[in-house]
Computed example of a mutant assay.
Amino acid sequence: MPEVIFPGPEGRLEGRYHPQPNRDAPIAIILHPHPQFGGTMNNKVVYNLHYAFHDLGFTVLRFNFRGVGRSQGEYDQGVGELSDAASALDYLQNLNPNAKGCWVAGFSFGAWIGMQLLMRRPEIQGFVSVAPPANMYDFTFLAPCPSSGLIVNGSADRVVPPADVTGLSEKLKQQKGITITHEVIEGAGHFFEPGMDQLMGLINAYVGRRLTETTR
């Protein structure tokens, strides 16, 4: 899996790019947790998301937001990080112009950025939001949410209270034309230790089912 450096809004961004042999494979970008609280593209949830999507047949890119690792720039309250994500998706699309499908997945802060990217990029067909921080950030921009997707959180999460994620999911489920699937992993904390195997199992099953539906 090659290390890549690609242009971002504030300089170079560092990523890991994992292509498929077939040129028309769907693409996915994976977004990491909060840069100021130790979040990087090598976070265990992000790493496992990356490989889950690749195993499902996606060409995948994960990367470090500005100011993290070898990515240039400084933390920008989510505004610049959204621009970073858009640049990463541009880079991935330029490498894979024939891709059949586009997904975004994010964990915690990365889930918030991913949902904003979803609103800006109509080509994104599906999303996976792991422990979206509904208690910390405003998600009312999802009006309406343009794509169906999966939201997963742990019942023992002390960073993002489960009730807040349930509230977000229930609001999104009221919208017509999309389907929001919400799963709660019993006993799992914010970082899914324990619970990682169950998390990846749910994501594999959900994304695999969506892929089967689109190829019928």
Rank of each mutant, 00 (worst) to 15 (best):
M1S: 09
P2E: 13
P2Q: 13
E3V: 15
E3S: 12
F6I: 00
P7Y: 04
G11E: 05
R12L: 13
L13G: 06
G15H: 01
R16K: 12
R16I: 15
H18Q: 14
P19C: 14
D24H: 15
A28K: 07
A28C: 12
A28G: 09
L31I: 13
L31M: 14
H32Q: 09
H32S: 05
Q36P: 01
G39A: 09
N42Y: 13
N42F: 12
N43S: 08
N43T: 04
K44M: 04
Y47T: 10
N48F: 09
H54D: 09
H54Y: 14
D55W: 13
D55Y: 08
L56C: 12
L56S: 11
L56P: 07
F63C: 02
F63M: 06
R66T: 05
G69W: 03
G69Q: 02
R70H: 14
Q72I: 04
Q77P: 04
Q77I: 05
Q77A: 12
Q77E: 12
G78M: 01
E81S: 01
L82D: 05
S83I: 10
D84T: 03
A85L: 07
A88F: 07
A88H: 06
D90A: 14
N94Q: 14
N94I: 13
N96T: 14
N98M: 14
G101W: 10
V104D: 01
G106I: 04
G106P: 03
S108A: 11
F109I: 06
G110W: 04
G110C: 04
A111R: 00
A111V: 01
G114H: 08
G114E: 03
M115W: 06
Q116I: 02
L117A: 11
L118Y: 06
E123T: 15
I124R: 11
I124S: 13
I124F: 15
G126C: 14
G126Q: 14
G126L: 12
F127E: 06
P133R: 03
P133K: 10
N135I: 10
F141G: 05
C145S: 07
S147N: 08
S147I: 10
S148T: 12
G149Q: 03
G149E: 09
G149H: 00
L150R: 02
G154I: 06
G154F: 04
D157L: 08
R158G: 12
V159R: 06
V160D: 03
P161S: 10
G167S: 06
L168F: 00
S169N: 00
Q174A: 15
K176V: 10
G177P: 00
I178T: 06
T181M: 00
T181Y: 03
T181K: 04
E183P: 04
E183T: 09
V184G: 02
G187Q: 01
G189D: 14
H190T: 10
F191P: 00
F192E: 05
P194E: 01
P194D: 05
M196W: 01
M196T: 00
G201H: 08
V207R: 02
T212N: 13
E213M: 10
E213K: 11
E213C: 01
T215R: 10
R216Y: 07
